[in-house]
């Protein structure tokens, strides 16, 4: 029934997923896995195919090609089982605005088959987690967007799913609500939940996610851990380091430049005298550069690998322009 033996460590496995709407190829051979009990970012520009992928995972869309497995269960053949394991929060607010917060959660808990006692328990828990206990008797239509987002998250949690699918959960939220939401998500990860979070802003997820998948024009451009993305480069032997010193001696740049394998030495900041040094790791080493700098009797404040800026990485991986059909 479920091949749990082989897939126990993955909350989500997507293999060869393709889907098109008429002539528009929304997804083209998408492959990636999400480890259990982690926060996985799913990033891509508008129209990349994020929502289509999420709908396929959430059993709302039947993939035309490929397989999607949630904790080993196929989303097509075992959709009922999958639905009990996932909690899906779409990018729009899926809310019955004329209900009170309590009624809304009670309704969904009942829809998932919980009895009265279980519902009382779980509603208390999710309200406490989302800090909405004091507003449980308010009508949803009277709540602010941030609060509605919390209620929406509480709704996703009522049946205690193992995998949370969140589609652009922070869009439209003010900075405070955004930070609070991220805190709740971290708490949920600590509770053992796997969180799959989609966004079109990579930097928003940088501090939160353990791993990330970048999707562009229906294709996976990168999947792996966050650090791998930041160091991801077409020429893997090319490495860049940052060196901060207190005072720059005369001929410092020329000396470093003369080391075999060093391609560029650029000053990037006036304060603290910060330099960016690019070199070929096969011809040179960081120890060699550091030793040379120390030979010049400089006071080294910091020497670390230069991780490319997130937006730069994102721009390198994705293509510019509007997607054609």
């Amino acid at each position: 029934m479920t091949d749990t033996a082989t897939t126990q460590t993955y909350a989500l496995e997507i293999t060869g997923l393709s889907h098109s709407f008429k002539s528009h190829q929304a997804l083209n051979n998408v492959n990636f896995n999400v480890p259990a009990k982690s926060i996985h970012g799913f990033v891509g520009p508008n129209g990349a195919g994020k929502t289509t992928t999420l709908k396929a995972i959430a059993t709302l869309l039947k993939p035309q090609k490929g397989t999607v497995k949630v904790f080993g269960s196929n989303v097509v053949s075992h959709y009922k089982e999958v639905r009990t394991k996932i909690g899906f929060m779409p990018d729009h607010f899926s809310m019955y605005r004329q209900m009170s917060v309590f009624e809304y959660l009670d309704f969904f808990a009942a829809a998932y088959g919980l009895n009265l006692a279980e519902r009382d328990q779980v509603i208390g828990d999710v309200l406490s987690l989302t800090d909405m206990e004091g507003r449980k008797d308010d009508l949803i239509k009277g709540l602010s967007r941030g609060m509605q987002q919390r209620v929406s998250l509480a709704r996703v949690l009522v049946h205690d799913p193992d995998l949370l699918l969140l589609d652009e959960p922070a869009s439209g939220l003010d900075p405070r609500a955004r930070i609070e939401l991220m805190e709740i998500l971290q708490e949920l990860r600590n509770m053992g939940k796997t969180i799959f979070i989609s966004s079109h802003i990579l930097s928003e997820l940088a501090d939160l996610c353990d791993s990330v998948t970048i999707l562009d024009r229906g294709q996976v451009k990168y999947t792996g851990d966050m650090k791998g993305l930041l160091t991801h480069n077409s020429d893997e032997s090319e490495v860049t380091y940052q060196l901060s010193i207190t005072e720059t001696p005369e001929g410092f740049v020329d000396t470093l430049q003369s080391i075999e394998g060093v391609s560029t030495v650029e000053k990037i900041e006036n304060i603290n005298e910060k330099f960016k040094i690019a070199f070929n790791s096969e011809l040179c080493s960081r120890n060699k550069i550091l030793a040379k700098a120390l030979e010049l009797d400089v006071d080294v404040v910091e020497f670390k690998e230069d991780l490319k800026h997130l937006n730069e990485a994102f721009m390198n991986l994705t293509e510019a322009g509007v997607r054609e059909k």
Binding site: T84, I86, F88, S94
Partner: peptide
């Protein structure tokens, strides 16, 4: 119309 369909249709019901 109210965009509430995705909530309903991912409950474990056919």
């Amino acid at each position: 119309r109210d965009l509430t369909h995705s909530g309903i249709f991912i409950t474990p019901k056919t």
